[in-house]
Amino acid sequence: MTTLLLRRLLEAVLVFFGVTLIIYVMVYALPGDPVRAMAGDRPLTPSVVAALREQHHLDDPVLVQYGQYLAGLFHGDLGADFSGVPVAEQMADRWPVTVRLALTAWGIEAVAGIALGVFAALRRGTWPDRAVLAFTTAAVSVPVFVLGYTAQVLLGVRLGWFPVAGDSAGWPSAYVLPALVVAAFGLASVSRLVRAEVIDNLSADYVRTAAAKGLSKRRTLLVHVLRNSLLPAVTYLAVDLGLLLGGTVIVEGVFNLPGVGQLLFQAVQAHTGPTVVGVATSLILVFLTVSVLVDLLNSLLDPRIRRD
């Protein structure tokens, strides 16, 4: 058990160094002048260029630069924007919004995804099943911002069921619509996974045994089939939590929710290079941490993985 934990942690550390090195090399060491790229279209005076090169240690060898960048990361230093405000500080009071949105979406995904999957599986081959399949494929095919704007205009502006944008209405009313849009993709995946597994398990021997024992259909389904069918969906949901925490960029931009994703959205549109890199790095690190935790939890819960 301990060796497994150690091995997983070691792998996670390796991945951490790999990911940060790649970000560093891609952003700062690519051919082309990183100072120019950071400034976007704005003109820079030579003194600013010199100061920026100094500040980002651009005249040192690449590995030394990477070391300094890492040291900064460990101190929570994600860089600063052009007016000198640290990125970490800008993000601090935005995290609660992002976490709330991600968790709401996650809950919708889990509940609705599993329910739809079981529903479709029990009516396999009939038109409700095909409708669910078509709906889930459609949900994956529509880009999230198209879905977002459409939902915003139809349900927010025309029908007035939800606040159009912003978070002044607070949780839940300001978050339900954005969360639905965020959840659409994962909901589709979860329901497909559950459907396939339930169909598979319904023809398993233990279901016939349960029926022979005289168990009710409901009990067989809820206790036996469902429990055996949820593993792939649970694994997917676990990984998806990390993705949701990092993947709400577009939706927070569309719905004007003041979260971390919106900061990234605005920074990209304003060409504030250092903020983009800082925020994206921290979102990627959150994703990494959550996946490692999930991985460990999975190997604790599932004996089959542990024995590997």
Partner: peptide
Amino acid sequence: ARLTDVFLGFPFLLGAIVVLSSVT
């Protein structure tokens, strides 16, 4: 496998945002 792990460590969109925002 480790190399694959490293690249899987990037959420698709975020990785692309980081790289593309530094390309002119």
